Amino acid sequence: MTASTLLGSATGSATGPAAPAPGRGRGRIRRLSAALGVVPFLAYLVIFLVIPTLTVVVGAFVEKGRPSLANLRDLGDSAVFTSLANSVALSAVTALIGGVVGALLAYAVVTGPADGLLRRLVTSICGVLAQFGGVTLAFAFIATLGISGVVSVWLDAHLGTSMTSSTWLFGLKGLVLVYAYFQIPLMVIVFLPALDGIRVQWREAAENLGATTWQYWRLVGLPLLTPAFLGSVLLLFANAFAAYATAAALVSQGNPIIPLWIRSALTSEVVLGHANFAYALALEMIAIVALVMTGYSLLLKRTSRWLG
């Protein structure tokens, strides 16, 4: 053993191991604090999303305490299939109506000043109307266009219509009108960021190259906005497909859409001979909404490449 080795050994035993850098300890504390901040959100997801979803999935495959596919087989019933088709059609129609009208309204808003009174007013109103639903919205339409509604009585008295003897508001046609009431403002809110992302320099560059207004929108503007528009329409579809409270308050007889079938399955003692049939209906809705939201996420990811 050399003298330098002995010296190094003695020095090491005297000073002990090297102490960790102070910055490394502070970094661990910050990461731990950030992780603790996410805990309430994770607990919220587990309680209100994960546990209910697992309950639905397990319940759909259980009947009388035993594994069974009877609940899933009953989904092929003609009445249930008709309600599913009505739900899809209602969601698609209202999503298209809300998408087109909302996109045009959003474009009209975005052409004005970013901090102008018109934009602040429209976005504030849309924020309120997009969340206006349930029993309150159903009552508003019944009081306005129902059998004894103010507008219905006025139209019958002055124009000779038969609104006070018509029950169209309490069927699918009425649901289309009522759903469009909150679909349009929701489209304005979700589509405005995409319109704000269209830069003025892109249009100026197209005009400098000799492009007309139509050529700019056909070759530049619309291709950029198409993924955002389709993603917003898918979001509106999921919003309408999962809506329940408004339809439940407006439609008192029959189950024209799937959410009302689930209500019937939960409130009646036995539906089609299977107590867990509501779980199978909910599982069907979860599968469709998950598929739609997957498409929305893919389109949103594509839009984020140029947005902002």
Results as ranks from 00 to 15, higher is better:
222 L>W: 08
229 F>I: 09
147 I>R: 10
304 S>P: 00
267 T>S: 00
39 V>S: 09
275 A>K: 06
306 W>N: 12
53 T>C: 04
152 S>A: 10
15 T>I: 07
92 A>I: 07
264 S>T: 07
102 G>V: 15
38 V>C: 13
267 T>L: 04
110 V>L: 09
195 L>Y: 05
162 S>V: 01
252 S>I: 06
30 R>P: 05
122 V>F: 01
174 G>T: 07
222 L>H: 03
203 R>Y: 02
93 V>W: 13
191 F>V: 13
127 G>K: 04
243 A>H: 04
262 I>S: 04
300 L>W: 11
10 A>I: 12
224 L>E: 14
37 G>K: 02
156 D>K: 01
7 L>V: 12
220 V>W: 01
44 Y>L: 04
248 A>L: 02
192 L>E: 14
267 T>K: 07
303 T>V: 05
267 T>Q: 03
141 F>S: 05
134 G>Y: 10
245 A>T: 13
92 A>K: 12
240 A>I: 03
208 N>W: 10
189 I>P: 05
157 A>C: 02
137 L>Y: 02
10 A>H: 11
191 F>Y: 10
20 P>K: 13
89 A>C: 04
162 S>F: 01
16 G>T: 09
265 A>Y: 00
183 Q>P: 00
282 A>P: 04
251 V>T: 09
152 S>T: 08
302 R>H: 13
112 G>S: 12
32 L>N: 15
286 I>F: 11
299 L>Y: 08
134 G>L: 04
55 T>W: 03
198 I>F: 03
294 T>L: 13
206 A>G: 01
288 I>M: 12
148 S>E: 14
114 A>Y: 15
140 A>G: 03
228 A>M: 07
107 Y>D: 08
132 F>Q: 15
247 A>R: 00
239 N>Y: 08
100 V>H: 08
227 P>W: 03
253 Q>H: 03
276 N>K: 00
136 T>A: 15
137 L>E: 13
87 S>H: 00
243 A>Y: 11
147 I>E: 15
113 P>T: 14
181 Y>M: 15
9 S>R: 06
274 H>F: 01
15 T>Q: 01
111 T>D: 12
289 V>Y: 09
270 V>Y: 03
147 I>C: 07
7 L>N: 14
138 A>F: 05
135 V>S: 15
241 F>R: 06
211 A>M: 02
178 V>T: 09
145 L>K: 03
278 A>K: 03
242 A>M: 03
227 P>I: 04
75 L>K: 01
279 Y>G: 01
